[in-house]
């Protein structure tokens, strides 16, 4: 036992970590393919990040510095809970600064600060299968992946265009990895999709309840599906962040009163805070 908690370093037993590590290595070797793994019951509920936690627990070492975000923010309740879990069971250093972290576990966002070589981004994934809403059966979707038969997804997106004049998927927007596997990027806004393409960082995806791990190695092509006459585009705001003035970040809309009052602020709290610090220092 490494720590006073009575549990092994980073909670998981060594046999479980080895099994997860082997799955991660296969996932990296087959970019975008969902590797089944013997997901364990964690002391946090399924659906609350158990896949990401298991991946992080298998990867993290004593020298790592961990950042955990939910909705882009370090101080949301679930991010706080997961960060505490690792600080307690692994005794590792934690940070809120994107560039200071060696491992970043995330739910629903990719940080605005560009990631660097050597960093690992661990995504919490609720539903790993990109074809799940189109075909609920695992046996069928597995065949479709084997044959790279993704016609149903193109049809679905095209039906959106016929009906709404645009693709009506705004988050968890499907991507093709390395020209082969259709992949769900987890429910990040499509605003973040371009950050996955040729990222210098290693991206690992853990789905605990669904028992799948997948990966995008650094410098790997990640293409958001689109059509020649309807190219992929990301969200844009007419407003700037009310706190730091950023016009290039994903903005959360905050309701300020019951008379239609709204303000927009960066969803990435580290990015916003650092910008404000820099502005104050410059004054």
């Amino acid at each position: 036992m490494t720590h006073a908690t009575g549990y092994n370093f980073a909670y998981l037993d060594e046999q479980t970590k080895r099994m997860i590590r082997r799955a991660i290595l296969k996932a990296v070797a087959i970019p975008g393919y969902q590797v089944p793994f013997g997901s364990r019951e964690m002391p946090l509920p399924y659906g609350w990040g158990t896949g990401g936690i298991q991946v992080t627990a298998a990867v993290i070492g004593a020298d790592d510095t961990l950042k955990v975000i939910d909705q882009g923010a370090d101080d949301t309740t679930n991010a706080v809970s997961i960060r505490r879990f690792f600080a307690r069971t692994a005794g590792i250093a934690t940070t809120e600064r994107t560039e200071a972290a060696t491992i970043i576990q995330t739910r629903h966002r990719i940080p605005e600060t560009p990631l660097a070589e050597g960093q690992i981004l661990v995504y919490q994934v609720p539903i790993p299968e990109p074809l799940r809403w189109l075909e609920p059966r695992e046996t069928e979707t597995r065949k479709m992946h084997a044959l790279a038969d993704y016609g149903v997804m193109h049809v679905k997106l095209y039906e959106d265009i016929a009906r709404f004049g645009r693709i009506a998927t705004t988050y968890d927007y499907p991507v093709l990895v390395n020209g082969r596997y259709l992949m769900r990027p987890s429910p990040i806004p499509k605003f973040d999709n371009p950050k996955m393409h040729m990222s210098p960082a290693l991206q690992l995806f853990g789905a605990g309840r669904e028992k799948r791990i997948y990966a995008v190695p650094p410098y790997t092509a990640v293409k958001s599906l689109d059509f020649d006459d309807h190219p992929f585009e990301v969200q844009a705001w007419d407003q700037a962040c009310a706190l730091c003035g950023a016009t290039d970040s994903f903005l959360d809309e905050v309701v300020t009163d019951d008379k239609g009052g709204r303000m927009y602020v960066c969803s990435d709290t580290d990015y916003c805070g650092r910008r404000r610090e820099a502005q104050e220092a410059a004054q």
Binding site: Q71, Y171, P189
Partner: peptide
């Protein structure tokens, strides 16, 4: 029930980034 309960109740977690995306759409 452990899987089902976790996933149904995960809807309590914040989803405002996705909701923001849907609002905009």
């Amino acid at each position: 029930s452990v899987e089902a309960s976790g996933f149904v109740q995960h809807l309590k977690l914040p989803h405002y980034v996705d909701f923001q995306s849907e609002l905009e759409l």
